[in-house]
Amino acid sequence: MSAHAPDHSHQGEHGQHEPHIVPMRVYFSVISCLFIFTAITVAVGFLELGPLNTPVALAIAIFKASLVVLFFMHVRYNTPLMWVFAGSGFFWLLILFALTMQDYVSRGWDDQGIPFLIQ
């Protein structure tokens, strides 16, 4: 690795972009965590957890994705607005899932009777 970053003479001058440099140990912790949870998700896949297998796998995936978003993608160090931008896509995805699945889940109700209204 070459020498240090050259010292920039931008003191007091407004409108200069100041990069936020994340410490190396954060990056190393995140990647270790990601590797460990990859192993965990594979291991958990082989365990008999009843109906919990899918939720656990999803929870691990969401945790891993959050690590990437927060640290590698610097949202953790960004403005609240960026949190909104990063979150909006996932929120809209939730809308798509929820309103699509409510159709498929309730399709059989006519034949079987509504679960919460036993006839």
Binding site: T38, T41, G45, E48, N53, A57, I60, A61
Partner: peptide
């Protein structure tokens, strides 16, 4: 990865 490769492995 989990959604495609790890469904019902147990």
């Amino acid at each position: 990865f989990p959604l495609l490769y790890l469904i019902g492995r147990h």
